[in-house]
Amino acid sequence: MAELQKDPITRSDFLGLGVIGAVMGTILTIPPVAFVLTPLIKTEVEGESDVLRTWERVDHVANIPEGEPVSYVIEFPIRQTYGDDRIQEESGVSQQEFTVRNGVWVSWRDGQPPEVLGGIGEGDEVSRDQIEELTQHLNVMNSTCAHLGCPVRWVAEVEELLCPCHGGLYDINGEHIGGPPPRDLYRYTFEIREDGFIYITHEFDGDPYIV
């Protein structure tokens, strides 16, 4: 094998190495990192959301029973990568519309419907005062456990919402009463409209992250 030959590095060589390093380093590190972190930057820094701010109809207040919560499946339209409606408009190629499916538990506070509910049936106009009364007594909660996101279920025998993963327990109002969860179930922003129906939007009293 030939002897190793170690030429001295001149000032211009050194400069050249620096230029090469700077070009390679800049173009091959910053854009790839930003590329991969796009959703993070858009959501965390620019405050955008994938979920469109729509109001989805849940059910009529008269259908919420006494003493137990009911579960609903609500789908919120989302724009994410190839499901983005702005992009589909541009390409003219429509893909399936993407949604995020949320499990929603709805119950009356402590299981007791307010007295005003007695006079309200489907199709009745609901007055402003009645709406206020109903709103104060209604719980609209996301079904994922505040601990690690497993779906909570209603156990009728003990009248509690139970998380099957690590045994988190919530009462009918979604308030944490036992197990490892750090807080109550996440509550939706909701409103009851004049037609007596409950509407919810994808907004919580905290960040459940996954739903």
Partner: peptide, 10 residues
């Protein structure tokens, strides 16, 4: 997969 299922045990 269904994110809204409440009877599934992960």
């Amino acid at each position: 997969a269904d994110l809204a299922e409440t009877q599934y045990v992960p």
